[in-house]
Design a protein around this nucleic acid. Sequence first.
DNA 1: CTAAAACTTGACTATTTTAGTCGGGTATAT
DNA 2: ATATACCCGACTAAAATAGTCAAGTTTTAG
Lengths: 140, 140
Amino acid sequence: MKLNTKSRYAVMALADMAVFSSDNAVSLRDISLRQGISLLYLEQIFLRLKKNNIVKSVRGINGGYILVKSPKELKISDILLALDQKVKTIGCKKDSKKSCNGKSTKCITHDFWDELDIHINSFFENKKLSDLLKNREARI
Amino acid sequence: MKLNTKSRYAVMALADMAVFSSDNAVSLRDISLRQGISLLYLEQIFLRLKKNNIVKSVRGINGGYILVKSPKELKISDILLALDQKVKTIGCKKDSKKSCNGKSTKCITHDFWDELDIHINSFFENKKLSDLLKNREARI
DNA sequence: CTAAAACTTGACTATTTTAGTCGGGTATAT
DNA sequence: ATATACCCGACTAAAATAGTCAAGTTTTAG
Ligand code: FES
Ligand code: FES
């Protein structure tokens, strides 16, 4: 039960942007150097963040990325959704007719996993990017 | 971010045992048939459950497994621990000197992931096996 | 004008993890 | 005796992950 690095790096990179926010765009090169994340990998990640309207890009020299929303308004769940699609802990789809074991009725544990998903998702829903920055500026 | 099938099946199998509990042991063959889980796979899972003192075994004919604790006392976190060792969402160890990016200080997101782990673990800590069985007997 | 900075995109690959199987045991009730 | 059911390590195919590569396009400083 672990988060993939794409999601992890995405949150880290966006937190970095929030800290070093300014009027101009933040380049991936700078984030890469500050946070120790591969530039090539960041490119792949920001592609999806852009597609999901979390950041917008500025091309050319002095270009980079800008947060679409303010850190106070940007939910962590939005970030994860952009990269992972699902924060479902099990395979069985909510709307699917089939249960996880191929039978017609829901399995004995189904409701429990549903509860778990709700519990985890509500955590991500209620956390904003700005929540990561409290008392942390000194530790970059 | 998903749970592996071993943990999933373990919870399912133990829930099955709780429902079909009796004075005598429950055989893996029966669980396999009822829940649609491969017998061979169940053997592997129960090996670890036994090692972690969640179940005890009765060998020979009419043998099987018996829950060590009552479903009311068996925490889901105990089950997951037996199979997964860790419900840590990220790689960075709490006690490790190194941060996830190889630098000497903790990264900008470290405390956040810690919070997440606590949030998820407390869910598993507070749930008992018996909680899965409420109003569910009819659906086996 | 042009070179360099920086984003764009799809494809590609090595490594790791996962899910599950296999084979050959041992204990015990009948 | 023998069938049933647990015991245990090793093995493998398939999928997911982490990360790279190549070949662009756009913009602006100089
Ligand atoms: S049927 Fe949904 S988890 Fe089993
Ligand atoms: S240093 Fe612990 S998660 Fe980055």
